[in-house]
Amino acid sequence: MTLMSVEQLTKTYQSTNVVDELTFSLEPGKCVALLGPNGAGKTTTLRMLAGFIKPTKGEIVFNEERFSRDVRHYVGYLPQYPVFHNWMSGEEFLTYVGQLAYLTKHEAKAKAAELLDLVNLSDAKKQRISKYSGGMKQRLGIAQALIHDPKLIILDEPVSSLDPIGRREVLNLIRELKKDATILFSTHILNDAEEVSEEILLMHKGKMIKQGAISDVSETQGTTSIHLSFGDEPKFIEERLKEIDSVFNVNREEDGFIVTVHDINIARSQLLDLIQQEEWELTRFEIGKTSLEDIFMKAVTE
């Protein structure tokens, strides 16, 4: 079953195709990251999906028969720079948008309280929004997107403008939300996509250049390298590593060692055993795979 399918979606501004014939579909219960450099057309795409702007061409079908009303009933949307009525308190604002989405006042209040709790703003609920910090506003923005229990949550760059703590909070929140809803969020930070999403859509200059499950896109066949780093470098480590029979070669890198191995599964347990036994201060153990960054760079320069 597909929640939303998009066919040949195109938006043209002054004869340039900002979004160029996108075709993809969203499965329920998945978290999908829309990736792309700035100016790739991510925001325009999301705005079309949220029902703000009309596509020049193409179709957005929202679960065919089941949802025939205005798409905004089923979509929760967080713009890139959410702006609120700053004279309201967080609680008032949530109640207000809840009522706009056809909840009764009572329902809206109850839902607002629940969401304020979820996004950790209960303490600040009576405060005017003008006093909120950037991270608090972003969390309030997520809460307002959820107020009418949308089937699809669209978040436009939810973490880009946040400091590391705010970013962590929001990513955790997304992870929490994945349990009940489909999430589509855009970002230009590849790590964030890797961290919480199962699928990626990669856009560049309005076109879709890559899409699929994150594991399909990012894993390369026959991985044979492990990246190790240590806090305090143990003595004779290079020699000790080479003694392991599954290890083929050890290369010293700036921030540790790249260990080339024959069989990744055997090497993993042998290496971890050794490290445990010697109580080395391991800070990084990474089975080499192509990072999204590599895919991204490759796809963009192709």
């Binding site: 205005d70 929760g76 949307y77 713009p79 702006v83 609120f84 948008v97 706009l100 989405a101 923005g141």
Partner: peptide, 13 residues
């Protein structure tokens, strides 16, 4: 201009 419109209109108003 401020952008509140975008948030408000993302609801079925």
């Amino acid at each position: 201009k401020s952008g509140v419109y975008e948030l408000v209109l993302s609801k079925p108003v």
